[in-house]
Write a protein that binds this DNA or RNA. Structure first.
Lengths: 224, 224
DNA sequence: CTTGTTTTAAGTGTCGACAATTTAGCCCTT
DNA sequence: AAGGGCTAAATTGTCGACACTTAAAACAAG
C-alpha cells in the first residue's frame, strides 16, 4: 500500500516504510525479535536509522520495546483483534459522521466515481478489490472527516495494524460483493449529508467485517 | 503530572518526560522551534537522545517536524482545540462505555473512594482539584476500559495535548463543582453497569468542558 | 534600489565507536 | 545433581564527528 502523502525523504523514512511493509506482510513474522545490528546489515543502513524506524513502528503499535532488552514485532491475538476493531468502530464511525458534515462536494463526487470503478472490478471478480479497494474506500472517508487528529490516529496509527491482521490471517474470502454494497450505502448517506446514518452504517460495516474475520478464525484455528 | 506506569529508565526517557513537561507547561512556548544542538546542551545529553525524545513528542502530536528543516512545537489554535475535543468526545465516550462493561468491582470501589476525596477538596475550595483531580478521574476511566489501544491513544497520545491547551489557556475558572457533579454521575452509571448512560454522560461532560474553554477564549482574546 | 545568483553558515541526517546493561554460560558451593 | 553467584559475550544506549541539505548573507547585474 502506498499513500500519496508518504514520500520518503530521508533514509530513515525509506527504512521505516520498508520495515513496516515487511512486518505487515509477514516477511518479518509476528512476535519475532528485531535485532538492531542484524537489521542494520540487512537493510544497509546504520543502527541510528534502524532505531529511528523502530521508534516510529512503536508509535504504530506494530512493535513493542523493552528498555535495554530490545524490540519485538507485536503478536497477533484474538483479544487484540477484538480491541482493535472496537476502537475502529468508534473512530471510523465518527469519521463517517464528520465526512457527512465536512466533506466537500467535489470530494464526494470523486468518491462516487471510485465506487463505480469498484463496481466494475467486483463484477469482473477482481480479487484486487478485497484488499486495496477496501483500504482505499476507508482511507477516503477518513480523509473526508477533515479532522487532523482522527486522520493521524487512523492512518498513521491503526490502519497498518488492521492490514497486518487481514493479510496474515488470509482474508480473501467472499465478503466482497456484500462489502461493496455496504460501501455504496455509506457513500450515499454521506452524499445526503445524513450524519446519523453515515455513522450507523459505518459502525455496522466494521462490525460485520469483524464478525467475518472472527468466524474465519473459528473455522481454521490458524496459529493464534 | 506523573503517571504510575511512566518510570524513566534510560536517559532518553527522562529527557522525553522533561521536554514534554516543559512544552505542556509552556516553558518552551507553543510554536517555537526546537533546535537539536541547543536542546542537547540545555538538557546535557547528546543529540541522539534529543532526537529520540523529539520523535516521541511527534507521536504525541506535541511537535511537528519537517525533514531537513527541524521540529517546532505545535501551535495552539481554535480549530485544533475543536478537533481535539471532538476526538476526545468519541474516544472517552467509548472508554466510559467499556469501563461500564469491563471495570472490575474493586476498581470501581477505588474510584468511588477517589470521588469522596475529591468531594472534600471541592468543599474546601482546593484549586488542586481542577487540574490533577480531573486528570486523575479521566485517567481512571480510560484505564477501566481495559482496551489497550484506547488507553494508548488517549494517555500516550491525546492527553498531554489536552493538558497543554488547558494549562496555557489558563483554565482555573469555576467549573469545578459542576464538573464534580458530572464526574459523580458518570461513576454512578459505571457502577450500575449502564453502558449507554455512561457514554452519554461522558460525551456530554466533555462537550460542556469544551464549551467552557471556548467561551473563555471568546471573552479573553488570548494569543490565538 | 531591486532582483537573481553565489557563497557561506547553521542545522539536520547519518555513521562508527564506546559505555552500560542484560542474558547466557560457566564455575563453585552445598 | 541442584542452586546461586560470577564471568563473558552479545545487545542496547549514548556519544562525538562527518556528510548533506536548507536557509540566510553577501554579492553582482539590471
Amino acid at each position: 500500500m502506498e499513500l500519496a502523502s508518504e514520500k520518503p525523504i530521508t533514509n530513515a523514512d525509506r527504512t521505516f516504510y520498508q520495515l513496516r511493509k515487511d512486518i505487515v506482510e509477514g516477511v518479518i513474522e509476528a512476535g519475532s525479535k528485531l535485532s538492531e545490528t542484524e537489521l542494520s546489515t540487512k537493510y544497509s543502513v546504520s543502527r541510528a536509522v534502524i532505531r529511528e524506524a523502530i521508534n516510529r513502528l512503536m508509535s504504530c503499535h506494530l512493535v513493542e520495546r523493552k528498555a535495554n532488552v530490545g524490540a519485538r514485532v507485536v503478536a497477533l491475538t484474538l483479544s487484540g483483534l477484538a480491541e482493535l476493531y472496537q476502537v475502529r468502530e468508534a473512530l471510523e464511525g465518527m469519521a463517517a459522521r464528520q465526512a457527512a458534515r465536512s466533506m466537500p462536494e467535489a470530494e464526494i463526487a470523486e468518491l462516487q466515481i471510485l465506487m463505480n470503478d469498484h463496481f466494475e472490478r467486483v463484477k469482473s471478480g477482481d480479487t484486487y478489490y478485497q484488499e486495496a479497494g477496501d483500504v482505499d474506500f476507508h482511507y477516503r472517508i477518513i480523509l473526508g472527516s477533515k479532522n487532523q487528529h482522527l486522520i493521524s490516529i487512523l492512518i498513521d496509527g491503526l490502519y497498518h495494524l488492521v492490514r497486518m491482521y487481514r493479510v496474515q490471517l488470509g482474508m480473501a474470502g467472499p465478503r466482497v460483493t456484500t462489502a461493496y454494497d455496504e460501501h455504496r450505502n455509506i457513500v450515499q448517506a454521506i452524499a445526503n449529508r445524513d450524519e446519523e446514518l453515515a455513522e450507523l452504517l459505518m459502525r455496522r460495516h466494521i462490525l460485520y467485517s469483524r464478525n467475518n474475520i472472527e468466524n474465519k478464525l473459528r473455522l481454521s484455528p490458524s496459529t493464534l
